[in-house]
Design a protein around this nucleic acid. Structure first.
Lengths: 345, 345
DNA sequence: GTTAGCACTCGTTTGCGAGGAGTGCTAATG
DNA sequence: CATTAGCACTCCTCGCAAACGAGTGCTAAC
């Protein structure tokens, strides 16, 4: 097979045809659209061989053939030509991502949204886990008599804030003192350890220091667990209805249902594994049943060598890989570069 | 009509049947399911009258009849019986909403999400506009050498924060001084005026005061416009595919398309008008063409007499009003009570 | 006024034949 | 001996007509 150039050419022609028009491809179509210098009969013979080899599937006797997952895998690995991204588009991706750098989370969210717009497929992103990150600064700001804003800044420059309620009014000065105290005590502590430290180390100290605000600490501790929630961003879930494999209403809906459930998507992304480059899983290669008619492409965002987020694209197995892959790569690369440039400190 | 009790009973029976099963209702069905003590022939005569009066519609000669928008309007206004909400459910709504009180925006967002889960319909919420609100406090917090977190707190207790970049490192002390200065100067200024004041009043003063941070002000001003964006929260847009009126793929998709566009939804909600109680628009009563096969129910969130947000539910015209309306009322009432209790200060 | 009876309407389902796209086999060809 | 023309065969799709049935509207009887 590896050396049978004509078979590969025919397979490629079939795949190209199927990508641009998701219908079974017949031998005459190949001859007409991609003149390979042989007659339909010859092509038929080759197609028959390709089917035996598992690269083609015949929906029924008198239909043409469609490429199998195995064929797309071969195509992606060896046959495909990646399209060049236009400079203008590259630039527009870059600028679009620079639009909101306020938080890593925003950047990740926007990258997924952008990719969905560019490809018209479904995309997901998972926000950075800050558990491993260490605290850099904590600040308490009065909102009103009964509410206090807690702002956490991690060493990766990620900002998290939440509001807690106090039993009684606390003076701004007090809060400032507490902020300094907490920052001093908690700086460089990994986020996931904050709760423990607050419980076992700080509570006593605060008492001794006669801060009036001892009641604040448990509130802060309780909310800490929530901010650790990794967020899932989903875009263009509805585009699934445009996938050729999902013209069947019920199937599409069950996939949509799956995608709507954040837990599923989270598992899916976390299971996708890390990789330097993008990673492509085609059809049955996917772990999840509902995805076995889709191709998923994932990329990893890293900051200081640590994985801080992931990007995933879900599309039909007959997507235009030559176009989609460079787009995905481009978005992922830009994000990683921006991360390095603006958040490395 | 008003006095024709039997007609009303028959109409009600037809509506009930159509609510539980969205298919044209025939005279025999009515007789069998809702024994009214008369024969199908009699019912047929009445149905014929009801059709003439505009309450029933016959899809075609040999089909049963379906209730018109006018019929649902009558049903909602005069025939319907509201179901009691179970105490446990009431309680679960209450608790669910109390879950995250950190921001008014969160509360509003969660209320819509909750309502969508409870009803399995599509819901929207629009977040409070803070333009009219006044600034209470502004605080600058260093994130790292090149980034500063700006936290705004409004007098309604709404917190907005964003990150700006500085040209050069600014000492924490400096930032504290600037925070105090800005808070002093800008407190009680309506949010929408902040930009103007910064430009025309503060720039000079800062200069005189020799703060090193003059460059921060333009950045703050530029970002102000963005945080003013009223946010739209949409939930369960996909549930539209379950509406009986939208089994047609293209129609459903055009509605979904409409709903996905935040601008449309924003207009829709703002046009819905304010009201103390919920407001129901059925079918053609809706302004928007795409909604003319839907019922929209809206509620208003108020704080200190001011509208701070809105909640909307979009479902099929044959929704179970007796169940949905109490749910919607309950969620809206809970939110308003929580607003009054926790944010009134 | 109510109702049984019945002819009539019209959408839906079912079955069937024609049409057509495409294959696989066979035999001829260079 | 690989290639190809020719042709029978398969099987899906489309269109159409007949059968079906849910429901109506009218009429005549109660």
């Amino acid at each position: 097979m590896k050396n049978d150039k004509r078979k590969l050419m025919i397979l490629q022609a079939i795949i190209l045809s199927y990508i641009s028009n998701p219908e079974p491809v017949g031998s005459r179509t190949i001859q007409k659209k991609y003149d390979l210098g042989v007659s339909p009969a010859t092509i038929r013979n080759e197609m028959s061989d390709l089917e035996e080899l598992g690269f083609l599937i015949q929906p029924h006797t008198s239909a043409g053939r469609i490429p199998s997952d195995k064929a797309f895998r071969l195509y992606v690995d060896r046959l495909m030509e990646l399209q060049q991204i236009a400079f203008a588009q590259q630039r527009s991706i870059h600028n679009s991502l620079l639009n909101d750098l306020s938080e890593v989370e925003k950047l990740v969210e926007n990258s997924a949204k952008l990719l969905s717009q560019l490809t018209e497929y479904t995309t997901f992103a998972i926000s950075p886990k800050i558990e491993q990150d260490t605290l850099k600064r904590i600040r308490l700001i009065p909102v009103d008599e009964t509410k206090t804003l807690v702002v956490l800044i991690t060493s990766a420059g990620i900002v998290k804030d939440f509001i807690i309620r106090n039993d009684s009014n606390i003076e701004e000065n007090q809060l400032n003192l507490i902020s300094e105290f907490l920052t001093e005590k908690l700086a460089n502590t990994p986020i996931y350890q904050l709760g423990y430290i607050i419980d076992h180390v700080l509570m006593d100290e605060l008492e001794r220091m006669r801060f009036s605000a001892r009641s604040l600490l448990p509130m802060i501790k309780n909310t800490l667990s929530e901010i650790n929630n990794t967020k899932i961003f989903a875009n263009g879930v509805l585009n699934i209805f445009n996938f050729p494999e999902y013209q069947d209403f019920d199937r599409a809906q069950s996939l949509v249902q799956f995608m709507q459930t954040k837990g599923n998507v989270k598992d899916m992304l976390l299971n996708a594994g890390d990789a330097n480059d993008i990673r492509i899983t085609i059809g049955r290669e996917n772990l999840y049943d509902v995805l076995k008619a889709c191709t998923m492409i994932t990329a990893t965002y890293t900051l200081k060598g640590q994985t801080v987020g992931k990007l995933a694209l879900v599309g039909p197995t007959n997507m235009d890989y030559g176009k989609i892959i460079p787009l995905m790569r481009s978005v992922a690369r830009e994000v990683n570069e921006i991360l390095a440039e603006y958040y490395e400190t």
